[in-house]
Design a protein around this nucleic acid. Structure first.
Lengths: 160, 160
DNA sequence: TATTGTTATACTCTATAACTATA
DNA sequence: TATAGTTATAGAGTATAACAATA
């Protein structure tokens, strides 16, 4: 018979997680918390937020994209996207246009200021991964990325 | 000179993501959204939420653990943990005790009802991973888990 | 009737700082 | 002085449903 734990653990590493340490959702959450922590440590001062920059970046690569498709591609709810885009509009980073062929839709593109914003921050944003301390060696890191890409159904694109 | 995209994409897969498809944070978020979607589809009806169950599970394995250590181990902010624990207390799942040797601290343990709750839901929770549809084969899945465990600094424990 | 985007509302999770009671 | 937990408040992100305009 296995003895049950009789004394509470005194340090973080002594906390028993059991099967939780094999739960995909739990592992993803732990990794994400860790990453966010370092992201804000690294880039917090320049007022860059990951979700926000992702949207601007995708607008940069896909000028004229419809709002709904943008939301779908980044898995952001449409109602939330509306708010984000209005915020960008208020800051003069994004312009909206209603196309003639479908007057329900909204086509989005960066303004000149929006392009400048993305140009200014892209390097810091994308080089952040390399600055992040990690216990994985480069090969493991590449493998982790490849598996995640396959899992979420993203084909890695050529660098641009 | 590379031509810029002249026409907006019409389907999700035509949306260019560029370097974003190589961003660790972005990949983690996409994976997590996907997982949550299926989690609630699979287990939403029984009123189980992943964060909530994780806390109860860890209390099950570590009876008498201090609230702060619990929060630290699961990377939940202390202020938020206070609310979660009060909610559990209100539902009769968790009991709090102030130890004599440090009267600032709070030791937590499941009540009988809490133990019953965990027993009732553990199987559904932990078998969820296996039900989730995934494009990865078992070996890739195992590798992904191992890399994530290493990344977040969790040593997988013996099954219990 | 179905679709695109908007509005309104609410809930979860997080962040921060000030507070208390103990140490 | 420092620590454990609490309270209060704000913000981000998400979920839902009802809605208007258009297809």
């Amino acid at each position: 018979m296995t003895r049950t734990i009789s004394r509470p653990p005194a340090t973080e590493n002594e906390v028993a997680l059991g099967d939780l340490s094999r739960s995909f959702g739990f592992l993803l959450r732990m990794a994400q918390v860790q990453i966010f922590e370092f992201f804000f440590e690294d880039l917090g001062q320049i007022g860059l937020r990951p979700g926000e920059f992702s949207v601007l970046w995708v607008l940069h690569l896909n000028p004229g994209i419809r709002q709904g498709l943008l939301a779908q591609a980044l898995r952001i709810k449409r109602a939330h996207m509306t708010k984000m885009i209005r915020n960008f509009e208020d800051r003069g980073l994004v312009a909206r246009a209603v196309p003639d062929d479908d007057r329900r839709a909204v086509e989005l593109r960066l303004t000149d200021a929006g392009v400048a914003f993305v140009d200014d921050h892209a390097k810091a944003f994308f080089s952040h991964d390399a600055r992040r301390p990690t216990p994985l060696d480069p090969q493991e890191q590449a493998q982790l990325f490849a598996l995640l890409q396959k899992y979420v159904g993203i084909t890695p694109e050529e660098r641009r």
